[in-house]
Amino acid sequence: MSARPTNPTNPTRASAPDATLRDAPPTSALAERPEHSPQSPLAIHAMTVAYDRKPVLWDVDYDAPPNRLIAIVGPNGAGKSTLIKACLGLVPRASGQVEFWGEPYRTARARIGYVPQRESVDWDFPVSALDVVCMGRYRKIGWCRPVSRAHKHVALDCLERVGIRDFAKRQISQLSGGQQQRVFLARALAQEADLYFMDEPFAGVDAATERAIVGVLRDLRDAGKSVIVVHHDLQTVPEYFDDVILLNMRVVASGPVAQVFTTDNLHKTYGGRLTLLSEAAEAIARAEAGGA
């Protein structure tokens, strides 16, 4: 336990993390943080996330501007998916808060849509593409009631918007990877949310699917929605997105692509200097394992 600064009033210990984590913002920056605006669809305050006590995200602070397409970019293991999952309450937060339009997740979730990673489900499940998209309507349908024709109609429209209405009756295992991804996107559209979280929607899809997804993203923005996308392809960031969050276990930089998506920032995100953070995380994990 002595390896960790547990007592912030002790000056020698409090200064320890700054000395170790050269890239972390100075502690005083937290106090100077601007007020989070209630217009912001997503405000993250000092959020730290750990798996099995091993931190994967350190002290994330972020305010999403409304009505933007926002990419989360960073190397493997940077915590991109974890950031989304922690915002949505799918993984527990070690500390910090998340607010949506100034409200907690519990009251705001009717306005939030989600596209999980395609690999996170078993595509051999005995349902059709239409059945999956209808799942996006379930919360509007409510407990114990069957899916009405009107809701099926909405679901079919959503399939149309992603360009695979003809495949509505297909069993989902008979769809290509790109088509499966579009089914997930259509299900999120069926949620009729104002803020969307999408986990790697472009991973491993064909060119037609990529075009379809980009088209849907732009339609969403034109309709006044916000979309936060975990993205892995640096080349397409300036073309597809308005804002970017550069992430490597902490927010390296965030803001409009034109200002933030610079070579310098990318070096900071992908370069070797930040390995100190992951080394510190390893050390904490080892200490926990040794102490247990």
Binding site: K85, P116, Y138
Partner: peptide, 8 residues
């Protein structure tokens, strides 16, 4: 995971 985010 989707069900949880959806509020079920």
């Amino acid at each position: 995971a989707f069900a949880k985010v959806d509020g079920w």
